[in-house]
């Protein structure tokens, strides 16, 4: 319980910072981690990307197409796709992030059981598809059918939560750039996910990271793919509009 005490104490003594520009995740990395993120020969996340390419090409069943069977070469067809997620699925009216869109495709087009959130295959395929948008600017839509999801996500971001009674915005808007123990608080954009996190020794999803945030402020941890995190993901993506996709990023 040492973290909450220090966290609360730190936030008490810090004056509120003025709203500044939202900076990309890589700006908050040490030079060593930034170099690792940019060096594909060392970046462990590339192992997941490589696995994702395998899954992309794999025929799921005799009479069912592989991802490549419909979409062809991902380098062309998937370029920029991840920058537009989460988006509202026209048929169902649901908000889908990249993971859930892949699962939908797998179930409806390939007739296969879902991989399952945070499964190795889904992480790998998501990382592979997101990788095709690396360095492209985020461009989610928040108008029309997306508007209610966006509003809910924005409200979630500013709502005080948990035993520490902290809103996302208190760390990631008001105190971004300041130190919290050995960390520099980032703007909390999700553009690096799925990311290779040193703490995990593995690639994990944005929702896994959000669950750690929720636990950090002693709030409810929502399920993977839950509406609460999906709405928040949309708000985070809009907040990062114009910033480059970094997935698979390296994070601490």
């Amino acid at each position: 319980m040492r973290l909450p005490a220090s966290l609360a104490a730190l936030l008490l003594i810090l004056p509120a910072a003025t709203a500044a520009e939202i900076r990309p995740g890589r700006d908050f990395l040490s030079p060593e981690l930034r170099a690792l993120q940019e060096d594909e020969a060392r970046h462990p996340g590339m192992l997941w990307v490589e696995q994702g390419e395998e899954v992309w090409r794999r025929t799921p069943a005799l009479d069912k197409p592989s991802c490549a069977g419909c979409h062809g070469d991902a380098a062309g067809t998937m370029r920029g796709v991840a920058t537009r997620y989460p988006m509202v699925d026209r048929a169902s009216g649901r908000l889908l992030n990249l993971e859930l869109r892949i699962e939908q495709c797998r179930m409806e087009r390939q007739g296969q059981p879902a991989f399952g959130y945070e499964s190795p295959e889904l992480l790998a395929l998501t990382a592979y598809i997101a990788y095709q948008s690396r360095s492209l600017p985020m461009t989610v839509r928040i108008d029309g059918a997306a508007a209610p999801f966006f509003d809910a996500g924005r409200a979630f971001f500013h709502e005080r939560q948990g035993q520490l009674n902290l809103a996302c915005s208190q760390c990631h808007d008001d105190n971004a750039g300041r130190r919290l123990r050995g960390d520099v608080i980032s703007n909390g954009v999700g553009t690096g996910f799925p990311a290779y996190r040193l703490e995990w020794n593995a690639v994990g999803s944005l929702h896994r990271r959000l669950r750690a945030c929720s636990l950090g402020v002693r709030a409810v941890q929502f399920d993977y793919g839950s509406p609460d995190y999906l709405n928040l993901e949309l708000y985070l993506a809009w907040r990062a509009r114009g910033l480059p996709m970094e997935a698979p990023a390296v994070r601490r």
Partner: peptide
Amino acid sequence: IRTVARHPM
């Protein structure tokens, strides 16, 4: 020769 292997170690 630069290598990365996927293993939990």
